Computed example of a mutant assay.
Amino acid sequence: MKLFILYQTDNWKSRASRVCFGVFVTRTKAIDSAKWQELYNHNSEVVVVEVTLNLFEEV
């Protein structure tokens, strides 16, 4: 099963600046939530990472 993690990060998309905003079942729901929460602005970027459930790996 695939899950999608929604992060807000700086313009350079560095891992140190990531803030997690939720885990979603579909990419569309993650993007809609980012728009609804107004996470898009000129100082930040939104990153949606696809992960597989029950798989041990670095995110």
Rank of each mutant, 00 (worst) to 15 (best):
M1C: 12
M1W: 15
K2L: 11
K2V: 10
L3C: 11
F4M: 06
F4Q: 02
I5Y: 01
I5R: 04
I5K: 05
Y7L: 03
T9P: 08
T9W: 02
T9M: 06
T9L: 03
T9D: 05
D10R: 02
D10W: 00
D10C: 03
N11H: 08
N11K: 12
N11M: 10
W12P: 06
W12D: 13
W12C: 14
W12M: 15
K13S: 15
K13A: 14
S14K: 12
S14D: 09
S14W: 11
R15N: 10
S17E: 08
S17A: 13
S17G: 05
R18G: 05
V19A: 02
V19Y: 00
C20H: 06
C20F: 06
C20I: 15
C20Q: 14
F21L: 04
G22I: 00
G22S: 01
G22C: 00
V23H: 00
F24H: 04
F24D: 02
F24G: 03
V25T: 12
V25W: 13
T26V: 07
T26Y: 10
T26P: 01
R27N: 09
T28H: 12
K29T: 05
K29A: 13
I31C: 07
D32S: 14
D32T: 11
D32H: 12
S33E: 14
A34L: 02
A34F: 01
A34M: 03
K35V: 08
K35N: 12
K35F: 06
W36E: 12
W36F: 14
Q37V: 04
E38T: 13
L39V: 02
Y40H: 11
Y40N: 06
N41C: 13
H42T: 10
N43V: 11
S44T: 13
S44P: 15
E45G: 12
V47G: 01
V47E: 09
V47H: 07
V48K: 04
E50G: 09
E50A: 11
V51G: 03
V51A: 07
V51P: 04
V51K: 10
T52L: 13
T52F: 10
L53F: 09
L53N: 09
N54I: 00
N54F: 01
N54T: 00
L55M: 04
L55H: 06
F56H: 09
F56P: 03
F56M: 08
F56R: 09
F56E: 07
F56T: 08
E57T: 07
V59D: 06
V59G: 07
